[in-house]
Amino acid sequence: MSSEETRIEEELVEEAMKAEDAGSVEKEIEKGDKEAAETDACAEDAAEEKTGEEEPAEETQAEPEKKGFFGKKKEKKDPKDAKIEELTDRLQRNMAEFDNYRKRTEKEKSAMFEIGARDIIEKILPVVDNFERGLAAVPEEDKGAPFAEGMEKIYRQLMKTLEDAGVKPIEAVGQPFDPNFHNAVMHIDDESLGENTIAMELQKGYTYRDTVVRHSMVQVAN
């Protein structure tokens, strides 16, 4: 073999080796890229798994702060709002207590007025009785005299005043006996009257606003 052929053969061998080395490098590069891609994919999966695990933990930690009893959301009140609610509740309580006090005092005043009025009426009734007895004692021929007429007018004025104040006489003669309004002090046998019928009124009774001030003293037929 000549030196020229030897040189050419060496060059061919050298080029073949270079080509083989280049192919190995490319394979190594492809292998490295593949491994890197696989590493990135694993890292992404691990990140996703970590994110999925951490999110519920954060939600669990935040949940007790946001929720109160029975799963309801607990809101933090403003101190000003709490103070306003406290003052409003106190005002409503005071208004309710004052309204109850006003009603109670009005009821007490009404009761005191009723007691005072009944006491005065009870003291006036004997005066009315004396007026009636005096007018009944006037003879028929003297009833037209100025004095008798004056006494009659005063009596009518007094009765009108009592009536306007709520005082009314109790009906008795000819009415059935009622122990709520009448006080039977005498009994009489009279066939012309029904049983337990009032035959005579001995003293007139009166009511004040539908309550008895004085019972009528009556004579009842059996």
Rank of each mutant, 00 (worst) to 15 (best):
T6V: 07
I8A: 12
E10G: 09
E10V: 14
A16L: 11
A22L: 14
E30Q: 09
A43M: 08
E49D: 15
A57Y: 06
A57N: 03
P64D: 09
E65W: 11
K67L: 15
G71I: 01
G71E: 05
P79L: 01
D81E: 14
E86W: 07
D89T: 11
R90Y: 03
M95N: 11
F98L: 10
N100A: 15
Y101C: 04
R102W: 08
K103C: 08
R104Y: 13
R104S: 15
E106Y: 06
K107A: 15
E108C: 00
F113C: 06
E114D: 08
E114N: 10
A117V: 11
R118G: 01
P126S: 03
F131K: 00
E132F: 04
G134A: 15
A136Q: 04
P139C: 02
E140T: 10
E141L: 10
K143E: 09
A145P: 01
P146D: 15
P146Y: 03
F147R: 04
Y155V: 03
R156M: 06
Q157S: 13
L158Q: 02
L162R: 02
K168F: 08
K168H: 14
A172E: 01
V173H: 04
Q175V: 15
P176L: 07
N180C: 02
V185P: 00
I188F: 06
E191D: 13
S192I: 08
E195I: 09
T197Y: 04
A199L: 04
Q203L: 12
Y208V: 01
V220N: 02
V220I: 13
N222G: 02
N222V: 11
